[in-house]
Design a protein around this nucleic acid. Sequence first.
DNA 1: ATTTTGTCTAACAATCTTGTTAGAACTTGC
DNA 2: GCAAGTTCTAACAAGATTGTTAGACAAAAT
Lengths: 206, 206
Amino acid sequence: MEKTNTRNKKQQILNAAEFEFLTNGYEATKTTQIAKRAGVTHAMLHYYYQSKENLFNKIFEDKIETLKAPIVALAQNKDIDLRDRIRKIIELHFDFLKTYPDLPHFLINEMRSNPQLIKILREKVGDTLRETFATIQTEIDEYVAKGIMKPISAFDLFLDIVSLNVFTFISLPIFRHIAYDKEKEQQLIENRKKEIIQTINHRILK
Amino acid sequence: MEKTNTRNKKQQILNAAEFEFLTNGYEATKTTQIAKRAGVTHAMLHYYYQSKENLFNKIFEDKIETLKAPIVALAQNKDIDLRDRIRKIIELHFDFLKTYPDLPHFLINEMRSNPQLIKILREKVGDTLRETFATIQTEIDEYVAKGIMKPISAFDLFLDIVSLNVFTFISLPIFRHIAYDKEKEQQLIENRKKEIIQTINHRILK
DNA sequence: ATTTTGTCTAACAATCTTGTTAGAACTTGC
DNA sequence: GCAAGTTCTAACAAGATTGTTAGACAAAAT
């Protein structure tokens, strides 16, 4: 057909690789399975991406880019009251995870088995994160001085929120059976979201 | 030497397998590497344990047993005031994770790639957990009626605590670089412990 | 039209990985 | 000491997995 045909194959391999790597992880993913899912011959994969590792790195770096969105969001909406903004951030991050439920486990798992990947993450988001922590810390301290917020370090607040949000989705395969259907599962998830907001609010608001 | 020699080889394989499986996961672990670490020939491993899968299942079930300890602890010390007991449970669970920092990721990762293992977990701890939730829920409701605790479901409280505690250790490889040495890392961990206790206390105490 | 470039496949090859087997060496009970 | 069982090794085998290569086929450029 058109030019897209060749583009398609290359892209199809990328799509299939993304699915396989995110579902099964690097080690459990076989290049033959990626080729099968993409509907191309196995040699095709090596023609376009040379090696499994190279293909994986493309996916990994793309997922780091995806992760950037909620981190960049931390530094936005500075006109909104900090307390409302924190609530917004929790919701945004939670909804982000709802869209990419496999992302946290994928990143944590791969970084654990290949510490080199931690470096890549740090290079991509380390500075942004440090700067945002500093800014938010100043804001928190002002609110604390005014007596309307409990003292907390920005890092701890960050870890509290990320822990609660991420673990909801990491542990979902284990607790999924509690919900009897997809609708009940959504209810369980939404309930957790409310609970997490409440927990953080109680932790920071006076 | 003595009788222990044969016992030793079998046990050494088990020890090596535990290390490899917990460090690298099922897929990334090679039976040759286990044999190498155990200091035995590769055929030895199959002689005693037949297959990689069988050996893995032994390790997995052993780790489920390990996990039982903090779950059983939930139902203990009923004479102590609920609020103090919850604090104690958080500390106990946190210190448990300090002893077995690789356990949560191992269990979560393997259950994700093999849902059959979730069933095993449920069979081993499901009932205990359900009963304990019911008991603690009654206690919570009493304290809420007395006006000395904020309303919360036992399940949410459980997930809040587990999320915060577990994520500390799951994310440690990523945040480890913040600490410059082992001592600073211990400080970081102890700081998180305090922060988690505070967060849960603010969530439940009036 | 023909060279050139890029896409694609079938077949092959090296290596890794799990698992088996025949029989040696060692233990143990008698 | 010797028969019987157990432990152990070296060699082998089947299959999976990643990667290569020669050349067919198609598209674009000249």
